[in-house]
Amino acid sequence: MFRYLIRRLLAAAVVIVVISLITFVIFFALPSNPALLACGKTCSPSRLAEIKHSLGLDQSLATQYWNFAKGIVAGRTFGDNSVVVQCSAPCLGISFASDTPVFQTLMQDFPVDLSLALGSAVIFLIVGVGLGVLAAVRKGRLADKLSVGFALLGVSLMPFFLGLVLLWAFVDKWQLLPAPGYTPITQDPVAWFEGLILPWATLVILFLAMYTRLSRSSMLEVLSEDYIRTARAKGLPRRTVILKHGLRAAITPIVTIFGMDFGYLIGGTAVITESVFGLNGIGKLAVDSVTNFDLPTILATTLFAAVAIVLANVVVDIVYGLIDPRVRLA
């Protein structure tokens, strides 16, 4: 198991380096001029050259990448004698828009995405798999049709629509909930919870369908396996047959997709949901940086999302090893 873990981690590290290289090249080798963007509209040629130099843009692309990578590990100092900006490790650059280190902004926004992802993922995983198992066990009957139909309805609603409907119903009309927003959990757990109920609900309804259908089909497949027949032939109670023998085997494909989705959510990709509920997460940061052409922030958010997905996949691989002994020992 330990060697397996080390192998997975090394592979993940390689993937992350490659991703950082690709994103870096895409953004800094583009024909756009980062120095001009950093400089602003009224910019003299001498000032432009100065900025170019202080950002290190007059060096070769390879050197620039090396400095960027080194900055992540060891921190970095921009500028020269006159203006010096310190960017401590892990340095992902200085935002052109706000002149603050990007990593700092990223970390400010991250708890929003973490709360959003964790809360919704726990709910849609448990409810989705629960409905899926129920549907599989009662295949063809009312419970099956209801859970599949309900899940399908959920996935067909776009978050901007669903979010607005929820807002209108729960906040404006019935006034059951305060206006959604993010309050740090350390500051006020109740406000944190209340402010996130609607965003969670939106994401849950959005993701539930896939988990219900996936676990239903996976469960149906497993329930037709020979070892399920063996379990019944041993005289095991139905509950043991379904949960211990069935679900344990059916959960593998669900874990795969869940890892992807969770990395996706943590990486700030629930942009629409964030926008509808006015949450300042990494998704919103990314969108804003694109509109402002704030290259360091675009680079950082892209990289962050990629790392989140890669790390989530490492966790998936570890969970695989725990679930399936054949993976662990291979």
Partner: peptide
Amino acid sequence: ALRGEKVSMIFQDPLSALHPF
């Protein structure tokens, strides 16, 4: 209550009849 206790069965292809996990 009778399965496995009073009547029991040896299945063909034990690789698929035993639970892999």
